[in-house]
Design a protein around this nucleic acid. Sequence first.
DNA 1: CTTGGAGGCTCACGTCGCGTGAGGGTCAAG
DNA 2: CTTGACCCTCACGCGACGTGAGCCTCCAAG
Lengths: 341, 341
Amino acid sequence: MLLRVGELAKRTGLTVRTLHHYDEIGLLKPSMRSDAGYRLYRRQDVARLHHIQALRSLGMSLTDIGALLDRPSSSLTAVIERQIQMLERKIADQAQLRDRLVALHRQFENGDEPEMDDWLKTLEMMTMYDRYFTREELDRLPLYRVDDDRQAEWKTLIGEAQDLIRQGVPPSYRAAQELAQRWMTTLERDTAGDPTLLDKLNAMHANEPEVQAQMGISTQVSEYVMRAFAESKLAIYHRYLSEEEFSFMRQRYPQRMHEWPTLMAKLRQQLEQGTPPQAPAVQQLAREWLELLRSFAGDDPATHEKIRRANEQEPALQANVWMTERMKEYLGKAIAHLTAS
Amino acid sequence: MLLRVGELAKRTGLTVRTLHHYDEIGLLKPSMRSDAGYRLYRRQDVARLHHIQALRSLGMSLTDIGALLDRPSSSLTAVIERQIQMLERKIADQAQLRDRLVALHRQFENGDEPEMDDWLKTLEMMTMYDRYFTREELDRLPLYRVDDDRQAEWKTLIGEAQDLIRQGVPPSYRAAQELAQRWMTTLERDTAGDPTLLDKLNAMHANEPEVQAQMGISTQVSEYVMRAFAESKLAIYHRYLSEEEFSFMRQRYPQRMHEWPTLMAKLRQQLEQGTPPQAPAVQQLAREWLELLRSFAGDDPATHEKIRRANEQEPALQANVWMTERMKEYLGKAIAHLTAS
DNA sequence: CTTGGAGGCTCACGTCGCGTGAGGGTCAAG
DNA sequence: CTTGACCCTCACGCGACGTGAGCCTCCAAG
C-alpha cells in the first residue's frame, strides 16, 4: 500500500503539482521517500488527503485546513457556520452586481448599439453613487433606480429652471417659486423623504463636477432653485412678521438654509439609533438647531413665537421639509429639555 | 487643473498605491511629470480614470479594461453579457456550495457536538460523489440527498445481506433472492431509474474502498446480492428453457451480468442525444448487446426466442432493469436494423 | 547491454490587484 | 533651518497552484 505521486494524483483527481504543493507548505508530507527520493504515500497519508479534500470542498483555505487537522481545537460546526456566512455575503454581492449589469443592459437593449460614451457616462454615474452611498442606502434611494418617467420628469424640471434663468426671471417671482416647490416635492419623493439621503446627494452634487455636467444641474441652477424655494417660504412668513423682522430674515435665511439637510440627517440618525432626546449628542444637535434659527430670526422670543405660529397654521410650510411627525416630536422634546436645563 | 497622486486618490476614493500600479502596468499614465518627478494628472487623465473605475465596477480585469479603452473594438454590450454570464455561473456555484453546507449543518445540529470523525466521513462521502458525478447528475440522484428514512432502509438491507452470508445461506435460496429483489427495487428508485447513474455508482463502489467501508457494502456483500439477483431471474427463465439450456445459462449469466449497466448507460446516452438507431455508434452498441446475450444464451435462435417469450410474459423479468419503454423500443429498432443489414 | 518512454525530482517564475514597508527626495509653512 | 506632509522607486508578499526547464530513475523491449 505504497503510492507514488502520480498514482495518488490519479486516484484523487488532483494534479501531481498540487501534491507537491501540499508537501511544500507542509500540509501533506508523504511519510516515506524511496531511495531515489520518490514520494511514497501510505494509507494514513491517503486518509489525511481525503480529509483535506473534504475540507477543501467546503471552500476552506489550505492554511485553515492545516490548522484544523493538526490541532483539532475549534469545532467544525463553527467553521461551517463561518463558511456559510461568507458565502451568503459573496452571493449577495455578486447577485447585486449582476442585477445592476442586467439593468444596465436592458437600458440600452432597445435602440441600436449605443455609443461607448453613453455607456461610460451611465456607468460613471453609477459608480459615483456607489462612492457616496452604501448599498442599503442605494436600495432605499428611488432616484438611483433607473426609470424613464422619472428621468423625463427631472429633465423637464431642469429645463424649466434653465429657461427661467435665461429669461432673467428673479427667484422671487411666482413662476420661480412654483417651480421650486415642484422641484422639492419631486426631490423629497426621490430621496424617500430621508434627509440622510438628501444630504449625501447634496454632497455628491457639490463635489462632483461630473455629476453636475451629466445631469445638467449646474451650481447656477441649484442655487437659483434654492433661492426661489427660500422665497416661497419667506412669502408665507411675510404675513406673520413685521416689515423689520421680515427684511432681516430675508437677508439671512438663504445664506444658511443649506445647512438644514445635514442637521436633519444627523438628527434622524440619532432618532433611528434610539438615542434619548436628553442625550448629550442630541442636545448638541438641538443647540445647533436653535443657533441656526436665531441666525436668521434674531434673538427676540416674540419673533420666534410668530414663526412657530406660522409653522403651525400654514400647511405649505410643513411640506417639503423631509420631516416626519416622529422627528418633530423628537426634536420638540430635545429642545424642551435643552431650554429647561 | 493639475492633480498630484494624493489629491487624485482622495477624489476618486482609490489609494495612491493603486494609481502607482495603474501607472506601472500602463493602464493610466499621467500625461505630465513635475521637475521633481511627481505625477501630474490632467483633466483627460481624470476622465480616463473615471472610465476605468466605471468598468472596474463591472468586475472587469484591468487588462481587459486597458484593451477596451485603448482600442474600443468590441462592443460594451458583449462585454456586459459576458460579465453577466460569468456572474451567473459563480453565483450558482456558490449557492450550491452553501446549500450543501447548510444541509451538512442541519444533519448534525440536533444531537450534541458531533465527533470530528463523523463530520469528516460524511464530508468525504460527499466529495467522493463529487468526483464521480457531475452537478446535474447529483441533482438527479436521489441517493445523494441525505434522508434518514432512506439511510435506515439501506442499513436494513445491508444488515440482512450480511446476516444471510454469515448464516451460510446460498444465493439460490428464496430468502436471498427475495432480498436481492428488494435491494434492486430500492436501488432503481435511488438512481432515479437512470442506468447512467447506476453505472457511475457501481464504478465508485468498485474503485473506492473508502466508500465500501463507510456504507458497509463490501465486495463480498455486493457479489452475494448480485448472485442472488441473478438466481432470481434464472429461476423464472428455468420454466421456459430445457434443462440443458438452463444449466448453460446458469453457468455463464452471473459472470457477465455486471456488464449490463454500462451498456445500458451508453444506450441511454445515445437515445437522449437523439442519435438515430441506425447510426454506427448505436449499431455498435446493439452488436455488443447481442454478443452479451449470446455469451450466456448460446447461439441457437430457438433459445433466443424462448427468452424473448419469457421476457414478454413475465412481468417480474421486466422489473429492476433500469429500462423504460422508450429504451426498449429504441433498442428494438437498432437490433432490427442490425439483423436486417 | 542499450535504449526509449513514462514518470519522478527540484528550482523557479507567472498569475491578479494591489498592501506594505524601506530608504530617500521635495515642498511650503513656521 | 527645521518640520511634517507629500512624493519617488524598489521590492517582497499574498493564495493555490500552472507551467516549464533540466536532470534522474525505473522498467520493458530490442
